[in-house]
Every structure is written in C-alpha cells, then in structure tokens.
Amino acid sequence: MHDLEQLKALASFEPKSELASSDANKRKSTLLRIAQNIAERSQQSSVAEMLNSVMAISARTRRVLHEPVNVELDVFNQDGSRAVVLEFGHCER
C-alpha cells in the first residue's frame, strides 16, 4: 500500500522549473539565462570545457523547444482487464 501512495504522490508532482512551463516564451527566456550563466562561467575555460558547454546548451535547446507530448500506456491482465491505471494530469494541445 505504501508503494501506491508513492505512485499517487508522483502522479500529482508538478515541476517548479520554468523550463517545464507551458509558455514557450518563458521556457526560451529561462534557457537564455542558463546559457548566459554558462557563458559567464566559461570565459576562462579550456577549449574542451567550452565545447562541452556548447553541446549541453544545444541538447537543452532541442529538448526545451519541443512542445510537451502525451504518452499513453495500456497494461492488461490475462483476462483482459486493466492491470495498471496511472493518471499524470492532462496535457492540452
């Protein structure tokens, strides 16, 4: 039963990061602030460290600029009844 309570708590989890915002402008401005912070810290970095920073920013940009997606998962028992029911909120398009 304890595991079920943890799953319910996880299902009601709401990210507090502005990168998880549904507002694209807010996500972009947050990403820009992150990039600026990385750039400021890397002013005296080696070439390898700067390349790592560029690759990290590139990866974050690709992930952040995509719209959130819905994932549906159906799990059934042998008798055809649902084995698992998880609800994580509703993502509207």
Score class of each variant (00 low, 15 high):
His2Arg: 07
His2Asn: 07
Leu4Gln: 06
Leu4Asp: 09
Leu7Ile: 02
Leu7Asn: 11
Lys8Ser: 08
Ala9Ile: 01
Ala11Tyr: 06
Ser12Asn: 15
Phe13Glu: 02
Lys16Leu: 02
Lys16Val: 09
Ser17Arg: 04
Glu18Ser: 04
Leu19Pro: 02
Ala20Gln: 04
Ser21Cys: 02
Ser21Thr: 00
Ser21Met: 04
Asp23Asn: 04
Asp23Gly: 09
Asn25Gly: 04
Asn25Met: 01
Asn25Thr: 09
Lys26Thr: 08
Arg27Ile: 01
Lys28Asp: 04
Thr30Pro: 02
Leu31Pro: 05
Leu32Gly: 03
Leu32Tyr: 08
Arg33Ser: 09
Ile34Trp: 06
Ala35Glu: 06
Gln36Glu: 14
Asn37Ile: 07
Ile38Ser: 03
Ile38Gln: 04
Ile38Ala: 10
Ile38Cys: 05
Ile38Trp: 01
Ala39Gly: 15
Glu40His: 12
Ser42His: 12
Ser45Glu: 01
Ser45Leu: 02
Ser45Gln: 00
Glu49Asn: 10
Met50Leu: 15
Leu51Trp: 05
Ser53Ala: 15
Ser53Tyr: 12
Ser53Met: 12
Val54Asp: 09
Met55Ile: 10
Met55Glu: 15
Ile57Ser: 11
Ile57Glu: 06
Ser58Pro: 05
Arg60Asn: 12
Arg60Met: 15
Thr61Arg: 13
Arg62Pro: 02
Val64Ser: 09
His66Ser: 14
Pro68Gly: 04
Pro68Leu: 11
Pro68Trp: 05
Asn70Cys: 13
Leu73Cys: 14
Leu73Phe: 13
Leu73Thr: 12
Asp74Met: 10
Val75Pro: 10
Phe76Ala: 14
Asn77His: 15
Asn77Ser: 11
Asp79Val: 05
Gly80Thr: 10
Ser81Glu: 01
Ser81Phe: 02
Ala83His: 03
Val85Met: 05
Val85Asp: 07
Glu87Met: 06
Glu87Pro: 03
Phe88Leu: 06
Gly89Tyr: 01
Cys91Thr: 12
Cys91His: 12
Cys91Ile: 03
Glu92Thr: 11
